[in-house]
Simulated assay, not measured.
Amino acid sequence: MRDPLAAPDLRRSSVAFDVVVAGLVGFVVAMSDAGTGPQTYIAGGLITVALAVRRVAPSAMMTAAVASAVVQVAMLQVTALSVMYAPMFFTAGGHPDRRVRRGSFGVAVVGSIVAGGILPHAYGDFALGDGDTVWGTAFGIVGSAVFVVGGWTAGFVGYQRRSVAAAEVSETIAELERRRMLDLYDEQSERSRLARDMHDVVAHSLAVVIAQAEGAKYTLAANPDAARDALGVIADTARDALADVRTVLEELRSTETVGEVSRADRDQLFARMRAAGMTIEATETGSADDTDAATVHVAHAVLTESLTNALKYGDLARPVRVAHDWTDGCRLTVGNTVAADPLAPGGARHGIIGMTERAAHVGGSLSSTRTDDGWLVVLTIPASEGPTR
């Protein structure tokens, strides 16, 4: 049956070492104690057993050690093997159980005092003058404490060092785990950004292509020139989409920030949507030139996604209202009328999720809600405290 106080992961070689050392020490001391009486052999035998099982069975070690001390006190005889209390208290002082450490320290202190009291009686050399045992008792207490309390202290210091080392290892592991989680978060954020960018490019371009293709299909016979223009818009949109995809892939390979968005990019977006049959009423307050590049980039991405949704789900017979306000950061509103028979019914709301994530990334907020007869997107990004571009 395993001792509940036994050292964890104790190797057999350690147990064998303790047994061999205890046997050798017990044999040598027994020879030196020859002729002192059977009680000395009993006390020495108990100490030998305690020394042999000090790590594999600490409970038995403490029981045998205390029993040996009781025999020595009762018979007023001290065996030379008592010096082996030092390694036993070393084991107790370094034990991982706090109760064992505290209890053994108390026993060490009391044991040193008791040993100092009996040494003058066990050995006449400790008595001074006319039977004065004061100095002998004091010397006995100090001498016993050197072995007993000193052994406990050495074990406790070793325990503290192991605790500090274990804490450092745990801290290192925690730091590595924290870094791993941050790396996973960065990786997931990069994946989310890629998904948003690809969605913006593909969804917008395909919406324009579908709208133009549907128009060309119905006007091919009646108005070949209009169909030819629609095919030209499809080709231009596909080329722009291909360039945007290449830009996204290039961003993945590069550590540089995203490119700046200019007014020409917005005008090109408006021209593309108008060519698809959308009427856009745009107003602007302030200038994007006084706003940081990240805010302008997010605003353009939200505008692109909002117009794409308006093209897919909106009523193209009604105008789409776009308002930019750059006076204090950015406030973008895009409103459109929802069609009864939309061009692309349904939707997984990935675009709205992507717009919300983009807004949050620069410290802004986004709302995308249904109105009485349409849909309204409002992007709000507070002014950045850092320098503008």
Rank of each mutant, 00 (worst) to 15 (best):
A238Q: 03
R228N: 11
R370A: 14
G329P: 01
L46P: 02
V209M: 13
R389I: 12
G140V: 14
E260N: 14
E187V: 03
R389K: 04
G117F: 10
R331K: 02
E357L: 13
T40C: 01
A211W: 05
A360R: 07
Y85V: 00
L332C: 03
L269T: 01
P8G: 03
R370M: 10
V29T: 14
Y218P: 05
A167T: 03
I141L: 13
V296D: 10
I113K: 07
D265S: 11
G346P: 01
T369V: 15
A43L: 07
G215H: 15
D265H: 13
M355A: 12
F270Y: 13
T133S: 03
S32P: 01
M273I: 03
A64P: 06
T137W: 07
P8H: 02
A383Y: 01
G215Q: 14
R196M: 14
A174T: 13
D244M: 09
M1W: 03
L311E: 07
A60K: 00
V28T: 09
E175P: 08
T91Y: 02
V134C: 02
L311R: 09
P120K: 00
M1F: 03
V202P: 07
I113L: 14
R99G: 15
A222E: 11
R99E: 09
F139E: 05
T133C: 01
L5V: 13
F126G: 05
R253G: 15
G35E: 08
A74P: 08
A216P: 02
A241I: 01
T371W: 05
R263N: 10
S68F: 12
I113W: 08
H199A: 14
F17A: 13
G335K: 10
R370Q: 12
L51T: 14
A50E: 09
L366W: 02
V20N: 07
F105L: 15
A108T: 04
G155L: 03
F147R: 07
E251S: 15
E190P: 00
M198L: 15
V21M: 14
R180T: 03
A359H: 11
V109L: 12
F90N: 11
L24Y: 05
V70S: 07
M1I: 05
A243I: 01
P87G: 04
P345I: 09
D289N: 10
D132E: 04
T304W: 08
T255F: 04
A108L: 06
A264Q: 05
A22G: 11
C330P: 06
V248P: 02
A60R: 02
M84A: 06
A138Q: 06
A230M: 13
R101I: 13
A344Y: 07
S189D: 08
A57E: 00
V169R: 12
R274T: 05
D240C: 01
Q160T: 04
G131V: 08
E305D: 15
L269V: 00
P345T: 12
A222S: 11
G93C: 11
L81K: 02
A294P: 06
L231D: 03
G45E: 06
V322N: 07
D3I: 05
S32N: 07
D97R: 15
T327D: 06
P96L: 15
I47S: 09
V322C: 08
V109M: 11
A222L: 09
Q72C: 13
A195G: 15
G277E: 02
V233N: 00
C330N: 10
R11P: 06
P4D: 09
G346D: 12
T79H: 12
G151N: 04
A138D: 00
H350K: 14
